[in-house]
Amino acid sequence: MTATIWWTIAGCTVVTALIKAFGPVVMGGRELPARVGGVIVLMAPALLAALVVSSALANGEHLHVGADTVGVAAGAAVLVLTRAGVLTSVLVAATLTAALRLLV
């Protein structure tokens, strides 16, 4: 690896540490307001949903709908409509994606 890559990794490490330290330093041991706590709790599911959508619809350079997109949609439908577990949903998504890729 080149020195540029290592400097980038080091820079990202320092910035991440600063960002994580920013909250406790600013709050100084005080309790968060209820509204702020509610927003923080909702950030993780929103970020996860954004990652899933971008992974399912991205083809490297542009948006693309393919077998993996259909698999993710089917897995989500199974999860929501049948209240099955996450493992069942992932298995349905993987099986459907593999079957569609085999056919196409």
Rank of each mutant, 00 (worst) to 15 (best):
V53K: 01
I9L: 09
L42I: 10
T16L: 12
T4G: 10
T16Q: 06
T2H: 07
G28T: 02
I5H: 11
M43N: 08
G85C: 02
V78C: 12
G75C: 01
H64T: 13
L57T: 11
W7H: 13
L32Y: 06
G29L: 05
G66S: 06
G11T: 06
G60Q: 08
V26E: 07
T82G: 02
I19L: 15
G28I: 04
P33V: 02
G38T: 00
D68T: 13
A73M: 05
S55L: 14
G85P: 02
S54P: 06
W7L: 15
A44T: 15
V26P: 01
V78W: 03
R30W: 08
V90A: 10
I9G: 00
V86P: 09
A73S: 05
E31P: 09
V39G: 11
P24A: 04
V15D: 05
S54K: 13
G75N: 00
L91R: 01
L63H: 12
V70K: 02
H64E: 14
A46P: 02
A44I: 15
L51W: 10
E61K: 14
A73P: 03
G71M: 02
V65P: 06
R35Y: 12
V14E: 02
T82P: 08
A56P: 01
L47N: 03
H62M: 13
G28L: 04
V70A: 08
G71C: 02
V53E: 07
A17T: 10
W7N: 10
V15N: 07
G85K: 03
L79G: 09
A49F: 05
L63R: 07
A58R: 11
L18I: 15
R35I: 15
A49T: 07
A56W: 00
D68I: 11
W7K: 10
G85T: 01
F22E: 11
L51Q: 12
A77E: 04
V14P: 03
T82V: 08
G28D: 07
A56V: 00
G75K: 00
M27W: 11
L42H: 12
C12Q: 14
V90E: 00
A10S: 07
R35P: 09
G28Q: 06
V14F: 05
V52F: 03
L18R: 00
G85F: 01
P24W: 00
R30G: 08
L42E: 11
A74P: 01
I5K: 13
L51R: 12
V15R: 05
G75Q: 00
A46R: 00
D68C: 10
T4M: 14
W6D: 14
V92W: 00
A77I: 15
L47K: 05
V36C: 06
V26M: 14
V78D: 04
A21T: 10
L87Q: 11
E31C: 05
G11D: 04
A44Q: 14
T2M: 04
G29R: 01
T82Q: 09
V39T: 11
L48M: 12
G23V: 14
A56K: 00
D68L: 12
V72G: 00
T4C: 08
R30M: 10
